[in-house]
Design a protein around this nucleic acid. Structure first.
Length: 407
DNA sequence: ATGTAC
C-alpha cells in the first residue's frame, strides 16, 4: 500500500486522487504510469478505486491527442450504472420479500419487453456494421452477465442538503439533471441500481481491433478510427438498452412501475477538450463528471453514494471513481475467505442485505471483503473537492445470478 | 468481462 504518489503530481502527466486511507497497490499505480507513457497520451488520472487490471489499470482516465486506444477502453464498452426509483416503499418490504418476488431472472427477456426494445436494437444495428448478429444481441438483452455486474435494490438512508446550482459552469444540462434527480429523490422509496454492459458485443469489437492493430491503437483521422468509433457508439447504446431491459424485467417481477433517474457509462472513449487541446478521454472504470449526478456504488455489503460532480473535476479529466475498486484479485478470494466463511454465510451482508448468487465461485470473488471501503473512496473525492454528496443508499438485495441454489 | 480460451 505505498501511497507516496498520492495527492500530488507523481510525474508530469499523471495524477492520483486518493487519500492515505485508501487501499492502493503499487502495481496499480505502476500500470497507471506505464500506460501514461504510451505515445499520444497527454494526461492520466487515477481515481481512488484504482486497481490493477490486465495490462491497463481500472479506475483511471487517459487523455490523448490525435490518436485513440480501443484496448484502453477494454472489452466491456459501455458498461455503466443505471439508477431507477421504484414504486415500492422500503418500510413496507424486506430482503426476504424482495427475494421471493424476484425469483430467478435468468434466461431470455420476456417477449413483451423484447418487443419494446426492438426498435432501438434495430436502429443501433443499422447505424454500425457490428461483429455480432442482431439475433445474438436480442438473445443477450436483459442479461446481467458475470464478474462485478449486478442488479441491486436499495433503500435511501440519507438525503444531504440540496445543492444550490454551483455545478460545473459549462454544463447546463448537468445542472438541470442534478435538479431533476434531486426533485425525484424520495427517502421512503426502494431504488433499483443496474450495473451491466454490452455483454458479448464490446468484447467482439475489441477482439477485431486487437487482431487488426494489436495494442497500437488508431490515428484519429483514419477510416479505421471512424469505424471503431461507430461500433463503439453502437456498443454504448446496446449497453444502455441492456440496463434498461434489466430494469424493466426486475420492475415487472416486483410488480412496480419505475422512474429512470440516471444511466452513466464508465468504460468508453469520447472526444473532449483538455488544456485547450482537442483529443479523446478514455475512461476505464471511471465515471464521467460532466453529465450530472452519478451513483458510486460500494461493494454489496457497503453503502452507495449519489454525488454531484464539482468544477474541481476538470483537474481529474472530468472523471470520478466508478465504485469501491477491488482490493483482492479474484483468484485470491476463495483461499482467503473459504476458511472463514461458508458460502451460505456470504448470502447475507453486514448491512442485513441478501445476496442472490447461485454461483459459488462468484459468491466468493465478489465478497465485500474483496473490495475497498467505499467511505475511503468517497472521502478521497470529497477531500479533493471533486464531489458533493446528494444521498446515501443501503443495499437490501443484490442480485448476481439466479437459478438452482449452490448452497 | 466474455454465449471466454488454454
Amino acid at each position: 500500500m505505498g501511497n507516496s504518489l498520492q495527492g500530488k503530481p507523481s510525474a508530469d502527466k499523471v495524477r492520483v486522487f486518493a487519500n492515505n486511507d485508501v487501499w492502493l497497490e503499487a502495481n496499480a499505480v505502476a500500470q497507471l504510469h506505464t500506460t501514461a507513457q504510451l505515445p499520444h497520451i497527454h494526461a492520466a488520472v487515477g481515481l481512488p478505486d484504482l486497481h490493477a487490471g490486465r495490462g491497463y489499470p481500472i479506475g483511471a482516465a487517459f487523455f490523448s491527442v490525435g490518436h485513440l486506444y480501443p484496448a484502453l477502453v477494454g472489452g466491456d464498452i459501455g458498461c455503466g450504472m443505471a439508477l431507477w426509483r421504484t414504486g415500492l416503499k422500503a418500510h413496507k418490504t424486506s430482503p426476504a420479500r424482495l427475494e421471493k418476488l424476484l425469483g430467478s431472472q435468468e434466461g431470455p427477456l420476456p417477449q413483451a419487453l423484447l418487443a419494446q426494445a426492438q426498435p432501438e436494437l434495430a436502429a443501433l444495428c443499422h447505424d454500425a456494421a457490428l461483429p455480432l448478429p442482431a439475433a445474438q444481441l436480442a438473445g443477450s438483452l436483459g442479461s446481467i452477465g458475470g464478474g462485478n455486474h449486478f442488479a441491486e435494490l436499495l433503500a435511501c438512508e440519507q438525503l444531504y442538503a440540496a445543492p444550490e446550482g454551483d455545478g460545473p459552469a459549462d454544463a447546463d444540462a448537468a445542472t438541470t439533471a442534478t435538479t431533476a434527480v434531486c426533485a425525484a429523490l424520495d427517502p421512503k422509496a426502494v431504488y433499483l441500481l443496474v450495473h451491466s454492459g454490452s455483454r458479448g458485443l464490446g468484447g467482439a469489437i475489441l477482439r477485431a481491433q486487437v487482431e487488426a492493430h494489436g495494442h497500437a491503437g488508431l490515428a484519429a483521422d483514419t477510416p479505421q478510427a471512424q469505424h471503431y468509433l461507430m461500433q463503439h457508439e453502437a456498443a454504448l447504446r446496446y449497453a444502455r438498452l441492456n440496463r434498461e431491459a434489466i430494469a424493466q424485467r426486475f420492475l415487472q417481477a416486483l410488480r412496480s412501475d419505475g422512474l429512470p433517474l440516471l444511466d452513466v457509462s464508465h468504460n468508453h472513449v469520447l472526444p473532449a477538450t483538455h488544456d485547450g487541446l482537442q483529443g479523446f478521454i478514455h475512461r476505464k472504470g471511471a465515471t464521467p463528471a460532466d453529465v450530472g449526478p452519478v451513483l458510486i456504488p460500494g461493494s454489496r455489503g457497503d453503502y452507495s453514494y449519489l454525488v454531484q460532480p464539482l468544477p474541481g473535476c476538470a483537474a481529474a479529466l472530468n472523471s470520478l471513481a466508478h465504485g469501491a475498486g477491488r482490493k483482492w484479485a479474484r483468484s485470491d478470494c476463495m483461499g482467503r475467505l473459504a476458511p472463514r466463511f461458508q458460502a451460505s454465510a456470504l448470502r447475507k451482508t453486514r448491512l442485513g442485505s441478501t445476496v442472490v448468487c447461485n454461483d459459488k465461485a462468484l459468491l466468493y470473488e465478489e465478497a465485500p471483503q474483496a473490495y475497498k471501503a467505499i467511505d475511503s473512496v468517497i472521502a478521497s473525492l470529497l477531500e479533493a473537492g471533486l464531489v458533493r454528496l446528494l444521498a446515501r443508499f443501503k443495499p437490501l438485495l443484490t442480485y448476481k445470478k439466479g437459478g438452482q441454489p449452490c448452497c
